[in-house]
Design a protein around this nucleic acid. Structure first.
Lengths: 228, 228
DNA sequence: CGCAAAACATGCAGGGTTGACTGTTTGTTT
DNA sequence: AAACAAACAGTCAACCCTGCATGTTTTGCG
């Protein structure tokens, strides 16, 4: 697995190809091209959409030959499935990076919502939408994406719980469990409305998010909401 | 325009093709095949998704020749654009039919939400999602769909206002204006989460909708929510 | 050093989609 | 009735995409 003696840093050719790495491990080469392919796929999904995303285009963007792509991902379905996991990584990374760096101020909820909204307007969100909609009618992709979605769901819940361990003060544990789900549903919905590029959708989104923020503050500070 | 003498009801062949209408007007013929094409397109979008929707398939389903399709809709983009308007009609029709037949009971809000959720799990919602996501990366479709979306937005607001003319009692007019927007964002978001067919998405949706119902009842009956 | 295997590159065939083209039927107008 | 226009039908070439098949390079290991 870990062979030494061959990888001699001093033995690199002076500048044959930049100051790059000559003589990489098979594992390194595989990982590198696979990463390039997956990133290119995600980029294509985000920029061109699922329909216009072809393996040819992906290879072009990745700077990889079609043969190499076909070697690592025998079929387009395999490529897309792997790309879905990459999108999951990206989104989780974004969520954690965004929610992790929040100071303890009183307006944590508001800023958290604003930052999350930023994520839902970004490339990873677009790619996820494309995959989600495509999965509905693709019997091969759907089960795979279902597992990925479940993981995303759990990660979101965990990240939210890390941020607000005790939840909103006015709500019991059952209701508090629904809070992140509600929030993310709203964000996903508003994100959909934004896709046509309408200014009204943008203003509506801010309006709705303002209400959500008010509700959060309200139930965190003021009244307990009794069961009905 | 209206020529008589040629349309002789008695001259119909005994039973050449059912007891149908022989000798239709040009306008009637056009409208009929266009309707067949648009309905077939919407059905394809809902069942196969945008990517797998081909004009060939649409013609097959509609029982129309490719030549006829190309005559009425010179390009695929034109067909899809027209289909978008058809989806708008369908959705508005559904909204009005659903919300219109609500009795004056105290649980109007809850039942309204449940009925709306049913619509968001139906074919017209799927077709709309497909169009929305496709429009993001289709420079020709996007502006067209933007106009349609604006109309849908206004229709939704109007339908909601018809249903609850005075809004929720505890909220001022500004907040009440945001209520339907928030609700429809939630529904759209939950609808997206459902696409992978996960049971958890289904239960989450009901959980979230239960919270939304509680909030509606709460703010309709109990406390006024002050501005912050 | 030499061979096996993995990684990579390129060309090719099959299938499918789109839009144009030509010809036919149906209705409208005079 | 005849001329004209619209609606309709079927065929065709160009294009793109996918997956396979063959050939080349790089790495691992004796």
């Amino acid at each position: 697995m870990f062979v030494i003696g061959y990888n001699d840093p001093m033995a690199e050719a002076p500048a044959t190809i930049a100051a790059g790495v000559r003589r990489r491990t098979q594992e390194q080469r595989s990982a590198a091209t696979q990463a390039k392919l997956l990133d290119a796929t995600v980029a294509c999904l985000a920029e061109l959409g699922y329909a216009r995303t072809s393996t040819t285009m992906v290879c072009e963007r990745a700077g990889v030959s079609r043969g190499a792509q076909l070697h690592h991902f025998p079929t387009k379905a395999a490529l897309v499935a792997a790309a879905a996991e990459r999108v999951l990584e990206l989104r989780v990374e974004e969520f954690r990076a965004t929610l992790g760096g929040l100071d303890e101020g009183q307006e944590r909820v508001q800023t958290a919502i604003d930052l999350l909204w930023g994520i839902f307007c970004g490339p990873s969100a677009y790619a996820w939408q494309e995959l989600l909609v495509a999965a509905r009618t693709d019997d091969e992709l759907r089960p795979h994406l279902a597992r990925v979605q479940n993981r995303l769901r759990d990660e979101v819940a965990a990240a939210w719980h890390d941020l607000f361990p005790s939840g909103l003060q006015g709500l019991d544990s059952t209701l508090n469990a629904a809070v992140p789900k509600l929030l993310f549903a709203v964000l996903d919905g508003l994100s959909m409305h934004r896709l046509t590029g309408l200014p009204t959708a943008e203003t509506d989104a801010h309006e709705v998010l303002a209400v959500v923020k008010m509700l959060s503050v309200y139930f965190d500070a003021v009244n307990p909401l009794e069961e009905l």
